[in-house]
Amino acid sequence: MPSPFILSGCSGGGKSSVLDELKDRGFTVVPEAGRRVVADALQTNSNALPWIDPLAFCRACCDLHMQDLAKLPNQERRVFLDRSLIDLFAYLEMKRISVPADLGAALRAVSYAKTVFLTPPWQQIFVNDQERKASFKEAALEYEHLLSSYRSLGYQVTLLPKTSVADRTDMLLNELDQMDA
């Protein structure tokens, strides 16, 4: 099975909309672990929230992400991930928290496609909700850490343009098609 492709970037930058479009076009899409961990923590009064216990949050995200990867169907068609374990490392770096050994071991155990797509900060579409409490300024800082982390780990980063969801999705798929040709 080919390695899954990562779509990451600025919180509130339009990742979910592009991933929804990819899903509508028949691709397998794995939802972001972080939003599911936050939703569960809010419902169960867990401390695994990024604004309460960043390490507990990252460990819960890592566990859920690894479960998601283990459940991926064996298929030839491209698979897209909403974020990856690298996002957790960038988050911990941004918070100036050392990466625990167990999270480092998890990252070494996974294989992602070397081309990564990032959504840049985009003030006009940025919104907060119950699971996203960071300001636009914090989201933009998160993006800088993500960009740096992916590049430092040798990934080829492609930035999605600030345009319609359909155009962003077409651009992403066209780039992958060109790589396959």
Rank of each mutant, 00 (worst) to 15 (best):
S149A: 15
R59A: 02
S149Y: 07
A105D: 15
W51K: 06
T44V: 07
S46Y: 03
L19W: 01
L146Y: 07
F89I: 13
Q156W: 09
A41Q: 01
V18H: 02
G34M: 08
F5P: 01
I125N: 03
K23S: 09
R78W: 08
N174E: 15
A33P: 01
E142M: 11
L22F: 07
L159C: 10
Q43E: 12
D63N: 11
V157E: 06
R77W: 07
D180C: 12
P121V: 04
A113T: 04
L81H: 01
T44C: 09
L147D: 07
D82W: 00
V157Q: 06
P31N: 01
A41C: 00
D180F: 11
P73F: 10
A181E: 13
G14H: 01
Q123Y: 13
E93C: 13
V165C: 10
I52A: 11
L176C: 06
R35N: 07
R77A: 13
E131H: 13
Y91I: 05
V18W: 00
A139Q: 12
D170Q: 14
E21C: 12
S164N: 10
R36N: 14
E131V: 15
L153R: 15
E144A: 03
M179R: 15
T169M: 07
P100W: 12
G104D: 14
C10K: 02
S148E: 11
L55I: 15
L92E: 08
R132K: 11
L159V: 08
E93W: 14
E76P: 03
T163L: 04
D82T: 03
A41V: 00
E138R: 08
G154D: 08
A70C: 10
A101L: 14
R77S: 12
L160H: 00
M171E: 10
E175H: 15
V165W: 10
D102G: 08
V157T: 06
D82P: 02
K133L: 12
Q75G: 06
S111H: 13
L173W: 04
A139V: 10
Y112P: 09
F126D: 11
L153P: 07
S148K: 13
S164E: 08
L173C: 09
S149T: 15
D129F: 08
N174P: 07
L141N: 05
D170I: 11
F117A: 00
C10N: 02
G104W: 10
Q75L: 01
S152N: 14
L176T: 07
D180T: 12
Q123D: 13
Q130R: 10
F117K: 00
L147R: 07
R77T: 14
L55Y: 09
C61G: 06
E142C: 12
A181D: 12
A109T: 13
D82V: 02
L19G: 01
K133Q: 14
L7Q: 03
S46A: 06
A109R: 13
Y143Q: 02
K71C: 14
V116F: 05
S98L: 14
C61S: 08
V37K: 03
A140H: 02
F57K: 01
T158S: 13
K23E: 11
T119N: 01
M94W: 10
Y143M: 05
F5H: 09
Q124M: 11
S17V: 09
